[in-house]
Amino acid sequence: MSELIKQIAYCIERGKVNKMSPFPNDMKEQPGTDELTKQAIEEGIGPDVILEACNDGMQKVGDKFGRNEVFVPELLMAAKAMNAVMEHLKPFFAAGNLKVKGKFVLGTVAGDLHDIGKNLVSMVVEGNGWQVIDLGVDVKTEKFISAVKENPGCAVGLSALLTTTMANMEKTVSAIREECPSVKIIVGGAPVTMNSAKRMGADGYSPDPQGAVTFLNQSVSIG
């Protein structure tokens, strides 16, 4: 890995967006992902190499979040640093030189409007190279099903924060199973546990966003 690429990965991990950004305090006045990605492209470094560095940085910060070493605001700054890279990579995606790993349909289940956790999952998964189709909050089963049908080969993530909406989660899991048996489903949210996820018939559960990435990388065929 070239020094420049390592630096991009590090800036993502630390959430350093650009030179102007005062965050993080110990990297003030230093270039961020914005300048470094521009430089990397100018130097002819392949966009796939840049993207890999991003995934690496995002994975590191995601793991740190899972270990309670960084917290929501830091993770969000990392997501912003990642977005700055993506701005530069957009033309490569448009030209077909870069491909997303796959699609991930995500939403908070019907009857629930807690979305902070779901948004974090969305950003981390996106930062790891997946396209996220975020259906928002209070999402009815039918909406999940039509999104799955519109995005063949996608995986699905369901979030619930109320113990009472876990029942809706279960209904949504079975309905998706019935209509689209091959789709992989991961569930999460504070009241959900590994056992309840199993009982619902989900394929995966994770208490944190990075676990969703591991699940997707392992269980969804990349195409």
Binding site: P22, N25, N68, F71
Partner: peptide
């Protein structure tokens, strides 16, 4: 709950 008690948040967030 936005820190683990041993480290404080970056000054940017306080701003």
């Amino acid at each position: 709950r936005m820190s683990n008690g041993t480290q404080s948040l970056d000054a940017h967030f306080y701003e």
